[in-house]
């Protein structure tokens, strides 16, 4: 299936493909035309990975700075008894490892959730790009801050919301994030996570996830197409989750 906003457009050049990354940065930080061009001029390679392949492993030292052009990825950590927690979800346009520009060793693993396409910069090139450009450096910082803000919201979600509100809240977040980067109607988009992955993200058992999806379905909030979820009624979902998008810090800066 062609998803044009993710770059499935044969007329696009390799450099055009970076548009989604620049759009992502512009969604929270103003950048001059010169800064934007500097990103486009940076050398990079395109790398394709299958679902579940590792992008970076805990304990490794990153030498590259990958940006997600297409597909979804996640950060995960595991406990000694094998329990897995998905601690972040990355969507197209997201830089996957700005952290490694500043700290040396990966403290979590980064994996492809779906088949992905990455733009891979050298971390040294990216450091050299950012160093003399304060607005770009600021954009990198803001990107990291927003991911931290999302992490705080997830902590509240997992620690204090009941299963129904917890799942509804995550679905609202994914919808808002995807809608913002896609810049087109994505109401029919299919959630990229399986029930097992939702369980590992939300700290619930897969059985509990299944029951909660049924409750959301009965309320008309979601629809199930084969085994994938789509949004049925965003208004109902927002109400169930008591969702506010403040923590996503969307459109809070004006363009240069």
């Amino acid at each position: 299936m062609l998803v044009r906003w993710m770059g499935d457009d044969p007329s696009m050049t390799k450099e055009d493909r970076l548009g989604i990354f620049i759009r992502k940065l512009l969604s929270h930080s103003p950048l001059s035309a010169d800064d934007q061009q500097a990103i486009r001029d940076l050398p990079f390679s395109i790398r394709r990975l299958e679902a579940n392949e590792h992008i970076l492993r805990e304990g490794e030292k990153a030498t590259v700075c990958p940006v997600l052009l297409q597909g979804y990825a996640y950060r995960q950590k595991t406990s000694a008894d094998g329990g897995r927690q998905i601690v972040a979800l990355k969507i197209p346009g997201d830089a996957l490892d700005f952290q490694s520009l500043y700290v040396e060793t990966a403290d979590h693993s980064l994996q492809a959730l779906t088949p992905v396409e990455l733009a891979v910069f050298s971390i040294k090139d990216f450091e050299k790009l950012v160093a003399p450009r304060p607005n770009l450096a600021r954009a990198v910082l803001v990107d990291i801050l927003i991911e931290a803000s999302i992490g705080r919201e997830w902590l509240l979600n997992i620690g204090r919301r009941n299963a129904l509100a917890r799942l509804a809240h995550l679905l609202c977040e994914i919808f808002y994030r995807v809608q913002q980067i896609a810049q087109e109607d994505v109401s029919g988009f299919e959630l990229p996570l399986t029930q097992e992955q939702l369980a590992d993200l939300l700290g619930l058992t897969p059985v509990h996830i299944n029951r909660t999806i049924k409750l959301l379905e009965d309320a008309g909030a979601v629809r199930r197409i084969s085994r994938r979820l789509t949004i049925g009624d965003l208004g109902i979902l927002r109400q169930m989750a008591d969702f506010s998008d403040l923590y996503l810090h969307r459109n809070t800066v004006s363009a240069v």
Partner: peptide, 14 residues
Amino acid sequence: HEAVRYGGGLIHDD
């Protein structure tokens, strides 16, 4: 094991 955790989750919720 799953059933006990599931029950625990349901009671935790409500």
